[in-house]
Design a protein around this nucleic acid. Structure first.
Lengths: 210, 210
DNA sequence: GTCTATAAGAAGATAGAC
DNA sequence: GTCTATCTTCTTATAGAC
């Protein structure tokens, strides 16, 4: 509706291609070694194109972060799972971004480990770059509300005991972020899975009525 | 004993000064914007001095990471606290690196928030830089053993219930790393404190015999 | 051991042709 | 909208004097 009806390549197509190229370059080289040139190399265009669509490298990366976080949360759909415990665990699995299984999320998100690494690097930048910080904050709030709603749903259904849903969600999210961070920054590669199991044993099962 | 008895400035003095200068520069500018020049600016010497003592920037930063992580763990001393629960909570407080209180650790570690930010950035590099990864892994193993020992001590004393100490430690550490990461990467600055309280409420109190 | 001076390369960004 | 060519700046690292 809001697009031209001509066959001219729309600006959105190139921008979408830039996002995909950025994703690939980021996973391959990491955030620290990411350059405009390396992004351009990923989709057969020159750096001038990138500067035409985005004023600065930082603008491009902020747009990328918004795009990629939205893509991910859009894919999370556990609304069809009835049982609150199952839904909570499924949600946790989705949020591990493929770090705890062999299957990945399918293109373009088929690089769980590399992508997690890049995302951790970008989080490190969030303290000093407000646009990044905004995206991470929005994402956190969204995911946290999903967890809180699921826990409260379980309490209302009588499946879970009375509990401070906000506090449980805080702990679950922190543990999962820490698990992902340990997974990519230590030699022990099973950290994410270990944390996933600890959450299930020590927090989720604890929510069940005795 | 192993030092010269002359009044010549020892090599170790300059190296120590370099570590302190690196700490300051890292906190002020962040890892991403850290340059050899900025480190040199922090202690009134030139970049040539840094290259004289360390071959490359990466060598210098690997040495810095080893130094700073050892400095921190050396300062952790909760061995005088008898009660296992108190000792566990004190340990957790130490590991929060000053993020949950107004008091800081004293020079040179007087920049809890900025230092945490820099450490998170460096962790992001650990996936691709083995020297970093080694340091973080060694630090993790050390701290984890401290937590496990405290929990097992509590179980033996009959203060804590029977529990999988390794699993609890895994969850506590992951949650704290996540809490520190959220604290510096979101607009909610109280994340570390919130996680600290959630750990106490949902994990530590749970360890107490009913 | 520390200095000055500089080499050598890479990066982000822009100008102007098409 | 995309290209080629180039500018400017910054960065690591080295050479050689002191």
């Amino acid at each position: 509706m809001s697009e031209d009806s001509t066959s001219t390549p729309r600006s959105g197509d190139t921008r979408e291609a830039i996002m995909h190229a950025t994703y690939k370059a980021l996973c391959e080289h990491g955030y620290a070694d990411l350059t405009i040139q390396k992004i351009a190399d990923e989709f057969e265009m020159t750096t001038a194109v990138l500067h035409y669509h985005y004023d600065t490298k930082e603008d491009l990366l902020a747009a990328f972060l918004e795009w990629v976080l939205n893509e991910y949360t859009d894919r999370i759909d556990v609304s069809n799972i009835e049982d609150p415990q199952d839904r909570l665990l499924a949600l946790i699995d989705e949020l591990l971004l493929g770090l705890d299984d062999d299957e990945t999320s399918g293109p373009p998100f088929d690089r769980g480990r590399a992508f997690n690494t890049a995302l951790l690097e970008m989080r490190g930048q969030a303290a000093r770059r407000e646009p990044f910080r905004e995206q991470f904050t929005a994402n956190y709030n969204l995911v946290k509300e999903m967890i809180i709603a699921t826990i409260n749903d379980g309490i209302e259904q009588g499946v879970f005991r009375e509990a401070d849903a906000e506090q449980v969600a805080t702990l679950v999210l922190a543990a999962m972020l820490g698990g992902r961070a340990y997974d990519v920054s230590l030699f022990h590669e099973g950290s994410a899975t270990a944390v996933r199991e600890a959450i299930e044993e020590l927090l989720v099962k604890e929510l069940l009525e005795a």
